[in-house]
Structure formats: C-alpha cells, structure tokens
Design a protein around this nucleic acid. Structure first.
Lengths: 249, 249
DNA sequence: CGAACCCTTGACTCCGCTCAACCACGGTGG
DNA sequence: CCACCGTGGTTGAGCGGAGTCAAGGGTTCG
C-alpha cells in the first residue's frame, strides 16, 4: 500500500487515535484497491473475511430474497461497512457493489479482531462506529413502518435540502431507481409520488430538485431528529459529497 | 442491590469475563428494580442515562411518529437494551415498556462508558452484543422490504415452530396485536393472514398454534438464515423462554 | 445507428388499511 | 348472581395506496 494512502487512512476517525504499532499491524495485511463501477464486492452469505473502508466513490449495500432485491444503504467516504459481521466473525447479511469508481481498503477480519482486543482506544472507536450504524438502521426501519411512501419521500427530500429555509435547490445523489428501492417502493411509484409532490411545490428535472416551500413539505414529512437525524452511515446521501459526476446535466 | 442479584448479573455473557473491580464499579451506581406490567421505562427522545438489562419478564421496544406507533422488538431475559444510545451518549430512538412484571438492572451510562474505556474484555463483550443487535435490526428491515405480510407471518411461525419436522405445536409468546405491529401490519390484517394460512395447514386457537405441514409454510416463507437467523436480541420470541404465564389456556 | 437503460405514464389488480359491527372473555360492582 | 364494561380478536364492506404489466420517450454508449 502506498504511503500516501496510509496517511489518509490513518487520519480517519476510526484509526486516528489508536496506537501506532497497532495501526501498522492492521495495515500490514490490508489492501487498498480501486474498483470500477458495478463491481460486486461482497455477496451476502459469505463469511466476513475483511472489514471494508471506502475512501473514494460510493457503494450500495443491498439484500436479496426470492428474486427480489432492495437497497439497504449507500455508503460514502469515509466510512466502514460490514463491521458487525467482521466483529462477530459471521456471514454478511448484505451484499455490496460499487456505484462508481471507488477505492476500498480491505482489512483482514482476523487482524481486526486481534487489534481490537488489545487496543482499548481502537475498540472505543469501533464501538462508536457500530452504534452509529445501528441507530441508522433503526431509523430506516422506523421510517418504513411508520411513514407512508409519500411521507418517506418528503422526509428524504427535506434531509437533502440542507438547513435552508424557504427555497432549496440540490441534486439527487443517486439514480431514482436506487432511491426508490432505498425508500421501499417501485420506480414507477417514486415517479408518481414525485408528481404528487408537485402540488407541494417540488419541481424535478432529471436529478435536479427544487423545493419551493420547505414548510409545505415538512407538513407532510413531519421530520423528527429521532427518525431523520443525520448521524451518517448509510444514508444516501450526506450532501457534503456533491460530486461532479461525468455526464451530470 | 442484593448479593444474589449481583451474582446473577455477573453471570451474564456481557459481564462474565470482565475484571472484578470494574464490575464493582459498574454495579456501585446501578439499580435492580421490579416493575409491574405496562410501565413505560424509556421514552424516545430522552437522553440515554442508563443502560438497561432485563433479568426477568418481557419488555416491548416501540417507536412513535405522528400518532402512529409500532413495536420494533420484544426483549427477553437476559439481554440489554438501548446499548447504542448509551455508548454514543445520544437520545433514545425507541421507547420501552414492560409487558409483564419485569426486573430491570439500570446501569448509569457514564459508568458504562468509563469502564468500557478501561476494560478491553468488557469492551469486547459490548461490541459483540451491539453487533448482534445491529444484525437483528438489519434482518427486521430486510423482512419488511423484501417479504409481503403473509410471507413475514409464515416466516415468523416457522422460526417459532422450532427445529421440528412435520407437525409443530407451540404458543404465541405475545398478544396478536403486538405481533401484528411487530410484523408491520394491522391486527385485522394479521387475523386475515392467519385465516389464509389455514389452507396451508395452520390451525390457531387463541395463542395456541398448530402447524401441520412445515414444508408448505416454508414454501411461502422461504426461510433463510440471512433473514431468519436467530442470533437473538429483539426477536419476539426465542422459544427458549416458554414461560407459564398466569392464565395461559 | 441501434441497443440498452432509465424514467415516465396509463390501465388494471390487489394487498392492506379504515371503519364499523360483533363476539368472547374477564373483572367489577350492584 | 347477574348486568355492565373494557379489551382483544374476528369479520365484513369499501376504499385507496402501491405493485404489475405494458408501452413510449429520452440518453448514453458501443
């Protein structure tokens, strides 16, 4: 692995405060690789051999059952995924694939568990990360069970409008079909839901979104830090990552 | 706290291997209390002051939004709840209330974090617990997004039929209205879904369930360790806890 | 230029929710 | 002992949200 990579990784919240020697132990067996888009990094059911850390790009976490498929989260730099499976040395519950060219650090699970056991600082960082992921999934589940699809969409738009008041303009960070799947609906239904929100002052052109009246949206979504809080980890997408995608209109 | 209680708690997987002195530090500020049924222990949104450990009874974890309510999990002895909020020193995302007379250990969050930082063994146990909870919610979310309600019900019944082949008989561990809420449907719909499953050889009388043909149910539920795996934590109910409830018919 | 692919729209179906009535059961108090 | 309720469960009727299927338009890419 290149030294510049090492420095970059070392600077992540997860590794920043840990013992130097332990960090080296972790990195000795680690890979830092670049993957093209649409590459399956992980297949659910496999044994968790590596902890993955995404340093560039975007990765979709998704799950399959009975010929159906749903996206569970979009992971952005810099965060880990499948930490829980690694810690428990258990099979992955989700699959992962790149959505764009992405760089991934892969740390052997055995090394992770070893260092984790001997470095309390690192253990603390791991736990914080894990707890954050947990809370993120709980929020996701709450949204699915308590909100109707139109309400989920409204909430999503509000989260991504940023802290603006009045009018907000932004780009959807992912394809609509992905967004639909994440929100637990079909692409057709997302399309219709967006049209319904036109009456509420939402204008959509491609991935460009303009929200004319945040208050009106909020009346539908009734946002709430206990469901919409942004502790990151899997929410597609933190708007701090508006990147110029090739071919963005 | 009584000594007998201390011994009991000390024996939990979470505390079993930790340093004795640290354990005492944890317990010094802890309470072990008995609560009647239908008592709200935790209100979502509150700051996470205590880690809770249930040693007897049953606790429902639920969430509210906009006058709607859904049960997210049922917690049985012996396990913790709201661990993630405590670790992150964040507000609870779920509320909790007792379903029956229950005994709860309450450990101050500050103590938890302190000991956690200085005892690697304990930290490891915490992480394992947390990772298990995380995986449990992921399974729950997968079920909600990938399975239809009838399929979710079938899967639930199979999980609780135990490893039997052929005919299975058991008791529902919770009220049907709770089960409905957990499975993400209305009580009316659960009722109808159960009638639909009659054609599949499922007979229900009160809380008594008889599954005549597990294979037929399995054809609907298509159970799968990645969705139905029983790593405990919140699944209502692990069938290792069939207790004689007063008034069980 | 053609082939994918994504998005949208329409028509249709159906699952699941709402509302309402009814029953069974248990507890309470006259 | 019995009338009265409150609660949880079941059933039915009706409706609406959301999925399915199918077709068409716009882009991108080989």
């Amino acid at each position: 692995m290149r030294d510049s990579d090492l420095d970059e990784i070392r600077d992540l919240a997860l590794f920043r405060d840990m013992d130097s020697e332990h960090f080296q132990n972790l990195m000795r067996g680690a890979y830092h690789q670049t993957f093209p888009p649409q590459v399956t990094l992980i297949e659910e059911g496999q044994q968790a051999d590596f902890l993955h850390v995404i340093t560039e790009g975007a990765v979709e976490m998704f799950a399959r059952w009975n010929d159906r498929e749903t996206t569970m989260a979009i992971v952005r730099p810099v965060s880990t995924f499948i930490l829980a499976a690694c810690i428990n040395d258990a099979p992955y519950l989700m699959s992962a694939r790149t959505l764009m060219p992405s760089r991934i650090v892969m740390i052997p699970g055995a090394d992770l568990r070893k260092v984790f056991a001997s470095d309390p600082i690192f253990a603390q960082a791991i736990v914080r990360e894990l707890a954050t992921c947990y809370r993120s999934v709980v929020r996701h589940a709450k949204g699915l069970k308590l909100r109707a699809s139109k309400e989920r969409l409204a909430a999503y738009l509000i989260r991504h409008a940023g802290p603006t008041t009045g009018v907000a303009r932004f780009q959807l960070p992912i394809e609509k079909r992905l967004l639909a799947s994440y929100l637990g609906m079909t692409p057709e239904n997302l399309s219709r839901a967006l049209r319904l929100l036109r009456d509420e002052g939402v204008a959509v052109d491609g991935l460009r979104v303009e929200v004319r009246d945040l208050a009106k949206l909020a009346a539908i979504a009734r946002p709430n830090p206990l469901m919409d809080g942004a502790e990151s980890c899997g929410e597609p997408d933190s708007n701090s990552h508006i990147r110029a995608r090739i071919g963005s209109r």
